[in-house]
Design a protein around this nucleic acid. Structure first.
Length: 668
RNA sequence: UGGCCCAUGGUGUAACUGGCAACACGUCUGUUUUUGGUGCAGAAGAGUCUAGGUUCGAGCCCUAGUGGGCCAACCA
């Protein structure tokens, strides 16, 4: 019952504070403001979760407002997709609104600003204006049109609206301060001439307001109390506040509340990209089959892949809210979906990479139907019947002619339990001319009470149903594909992100409906893809089960100089190195040299197995990577051979922005 | 040659100024199990970027430094 009182995040603290300072709870109002120029992705779910979450927490309305001020990029298709995705996540908006609804009000206010000499029409080229704007480190200069008379400005603006001018001929600018250190305050553009068809207002307008002017005033009109957005809008806050100060005296009675903008760090997920522009490129260049390709980080892609609303909301909750740049590990997302599906997905048997087993002492014409539990986590899930016969498929991986005792599966002379059925013993193998195993011959016993180490899933050959299974791998081979200067994210596309398999599944699946979710026992969670049709089953692999055997395996091979871990009370060299590394880049030069020497000394006690995990250190932690690099140099000196992981690590380091890291890497 | 924001285990987030820096993921043990899954029990892993300062006492406040991010679209 007692939901452990979750700590408030900083935005909730701000709201609490405002409430304590006299703001009425009834005045709380939030909004989610997508631009309908693409599909929503997992990054958006954080913003959605924050604003709608606040709405749920305080029982306050949350508007869905489409920020549709650029007709060149926006489409109805995206509006529909966005609404579908938010609803699917389980959120309900108070009002469906559009910035374009406020075009007239915005225009009226703009006219007033001109009259108050707070806005003017500029008639220069965009190049000229860009030049006058200065740079972040250099102030700007005034436009020659800055002091046009009110009458002239009014006339020009009216004619802009009337469509007398071509695109780009004039713009309306706020008159603020060309020397402000914040570039957004250097007479920002409020309106541009754009002869374009708008998805809602049609051809009514040929001037369109810019983001800063529109967004803040839309918040104001809607009387949004807290306008929450991502960090890159922090510099916009000054402008956001300036515009409101100008407009407030004009409408204080109608709109008494002044919204407050606050910013949080956006969500980044390892091995993927979050830019709508870049996702669009994947779609347009057919790298994926569409916005809802199961490999896409879009909400619709995740949905098709088999992610549930529950799992995504849980994920967002776990990720937290702060102002620090972050990269969330995909393993957290995977944890959330496994946790959800573990409780709900019916268990079934499917063999993805089959090898045939003939049970020689089981009559060829006999078949039995065994009772199989649907979900051990859910007693109410009931059971179903599974057919057994003398020929079954098992996974190729589940058989070895010879293997150590650690291999719990089937080996020659060994016994294994068939899930829901008998225990079998492998007697011999049949091989083809090339020595490949084509068949395993086994015998069974009816005594199922026996203790055997392993249990395998299987499918009766005679009863098996064929199905297409689509197995996915990450779309990019790099942890942060769009963060490499001078390298396009497209270079990091994983060519093997989709694997299509012809699998055999148990007959109970023959009628499975689109969207239905299952656990293929011992393999993972799968759902029926939209492409499935009468007589053609298609499954997506949502996520695999945790697999400690797969993890244990590689270790068995790379065990040459397995050092006994030192005394418990003595800290491991690798962890000391990690600690040094963390601070390395911030140390004064001489101290750095000292630490470097210590690391090199400590490195002698480090084994490669200990070091390798550090290769995955976050890109931004240059110091830790330097520590790892130094350690690596010692290992290499002592005869360690370079492998793929090592080369990758070095190569990545060479491209880094940190000169120290590059220098150390260059020595290898 | 500017302004703004940020800095806590591998990752992400907590921590009312004061008892050994908490939680989740990940990692590792053990255990249960007709899923090498789940569950259960447990462990390792940071002393909070650096240097000063304020204070009886500082991740928390101040100053400076270092490192990272953002800002020069008629995009949002």
């Amino acid at each position: 019952m007692s939901e452990e009182t979750k700590a408030l995040h900083f935005i909730e603290h701000i709201v609490e504070e405002d409430l304590q300072n006299g703001m009425s709870k009834e005045d709380l109002r939030f909004r989610f403001p997508p631009e309908p120029n693409g599909y929503l992705h997992i990054g958006h779910t954080k913003a959605i979760g924050i604003s709608f979450g606040l709405g749920e927490r305080y029982n306050a309305p949350v508007n869905l407002r489409f920020d549709d001020t650029n007709p060149a990029k926006e489409e109805q298709e995206y509006v529909d997709a966005i609404k579908r995705d938010i609803s699917w996540l389980g959120y309900t908006w108070a009002n469906e609104l559009y910035s374009s609804d406020y075009f007239q009000q915005l225009y009226d206010w703009a006219v007033q600003l001109i009259k108050d000499e707070k806005a003017y029409v500029d008639s220069q080229t965009s190049e000229a204006m860009a030049a006058q704007k200065g740079t972040p480190t250099q102030v700007g200069t005034n436009s020659p049109y800055r002091d046009r008379s009110v009458a002239e400005n009014l006339d020009l603006f009216q004619r802009m609206k009337d469509g007398e001018f071509p695109n780009g001929a004039h713009i309306l600018r706020a008159k603020i301060d060309m020397e402000d250190p914040n570039m957004l305050m250097r007479d920002p553009i409020m309106y541009r001439v754009m002869h374009a068809h708008h998805h809602r207002t049609g051809n009514d307008w040929c001037i369109y307001p810019m983001y800063d002017w529109t967004h803040g005033e839309s918040d104001y009109i809607e009387q949004v109390s807290h306008s929450l957005c991502s960090l890159e809008f922090k510099p916009h806050r000054k402008l956001y506040d300036w515009f409101k100060e100008q407009v407030y005296p004009l409408s204080a009675e109608q709109y008494p509340l002044i919204p407050k903008q606050r910013e949080f760090a956006r969500l980044n997920l390892s091995y993927t990209i979050m830019s709508k522009r870049k996702l669009l490129k994947l779609v347009e260049e057919n790298v994926v089959s569409g916005w809802n390709d199961p490999r896409m980080p879009t909400i619709s892609g995740l949905r098709r892949r088999g992610y549930t609303p529950n799992s995504i909301r849980k994920f967002i909750e776990k990720v937290g809210v702060a102002k620090r740049e972050n990269v969330i590990d995909v393993s957290l997302l995977e944890f959330c979906i496994r946790e959800d599906l573990n409780k709900t997905a019916p268990r079934v048997m499917a063999v993805l990479d089959p090898i045939k087993v003939v049970i020689t002492n089981y009559p060829a014409d006999k078949e039995e139907w065994f009772e199989a539990e649907n979900n051990p986590e859910d007693a109410a899930a009931g059971s179903r019947k599974v057919p057994f016969s003398n020929e079954i498929y098992i996974e190729k991986d589940d058989f070895k002619e010879e293997a150590s005792d650690k291999f719990f599966r089937l080996k020659l002379g060994g016994e294994v339990r068939l899930k829901n059925a008998y225990i079998i013993k492998a007697e011999e193998v049949v091989k083809d001319a090339n020595g490949n195993i084509t068949e395993i011959h086994a015998t069974y016993t009816e005594d199922t009470t026996k203790k055997v180490k392993g249990t395998l899933h299987w499918v009766s050959v005679k009863h098996a149903v064929q199905a297409e299974v689509r197995e996915y791998d990450r779309l990019f081979i790099d942890e942060a594909p769009d963060s490499h200067e001078g390298k396009d994210f497209m270079e990091f596309i994983n060519p093997n992100s989709l694997k299509i398999i012809e699998a055999f599944v148990e007959p109970s699946l023959a009628e499975a409906k689109i969207g239905a979710q299952f656990q293929f026992q011992r393999l993972g969670y799968f759902n029926v893809d939209d492409d499935a049709s009468e007589g053609k089953l298609v499954f997506n692999k949502t996520v695999g089960l945790r697999d400690s055997w797969a993890k244990a395996k590689p270790k068995a091979n790379t065990n040459p100089n397995q050092q006994k871990p030192q005394q418990q009370n003595q800290r491991k060299a690798i962890s000391v190195i990690q600690q040094f590394g963390k601070k390395y880049t911030n140390l004064p030069e001489e101290k750095q040299a000292k630490v470097r020497a210590e690391i090199l000394e400590l490195a002698k006690e480090v084994s490669y197995e200990e070091l390798e995990p550090l290769f995955g250190t976050a890109v931004k932690k240059a110091g830790t990577r330097i520590g790892a690099m130094l350690t690596l140099s010692v290992l290499l000196e002592n005869g360690l051979e370079k492998n793929e992981a090592i080369n990758d690590f070095i190569e990545k380091a060479l491209e880094d922005k940190n000169e120290l890291l590059v220098a150390e890497a260059a020595k290898l």
